[in-house]
Amino acid sequence: MIFNINLIKEVGAERLLFNIVSMYPHSFGGIISVVDTGSPRTIISAGAVFKLKMPITGEKALPICGFGRGSIPCRKVDKFKFIIKSSEGKMKSIEMPVYVVDIPALNNLSQEMKLSAYQIDTIIGLDFLISQKMKLVVDFNNNLSYFEEI
């Protein structure tokens, strides 16, 4: 199956946008994420945690460094459930560990750090490709990008 990715082609702001729907208990809703092969882990943004009212109950993880400006407190959620939709309209259910921005801990930081943290999108990292046995195709010249199950 193929799962399409939207490209932002603006020079200097190139991005790969991928849609997921959270099925995490009490936190149903859509998230536009950024595919980032420079990130080893998938990270649910402060904005998404806030919007979906995700309960922050996972094990405390080391802050994510090099992530925006400074480091951002986060927690590990072992079983994050979400759905992705194929180009043919079929839905695939996924459960995998993710990191979520720890909003209560973030609230203890400076206003500048909070602002900075909220500017960062949800990130689909390399762990998604590995755990879901997907390959990633990116062809900016032909305006084409997608995940494909191996």
């Binding site: 939207n6 946008l17 849609n19 729907v21 809703g29 859509g30 998230i31 759905i83 839905m91």
Partner: peptide
Amino acid sequence: MTEQEILKEFEILETGSQFISVNFKGLQK
């Protein structure tokens, strides 16, 4: 959640991400 509700979420996301993708330059301005 019903399949209908999930599909509705995807519709919102797809419309939004395509809008951002196509209009990014104007949005930045």
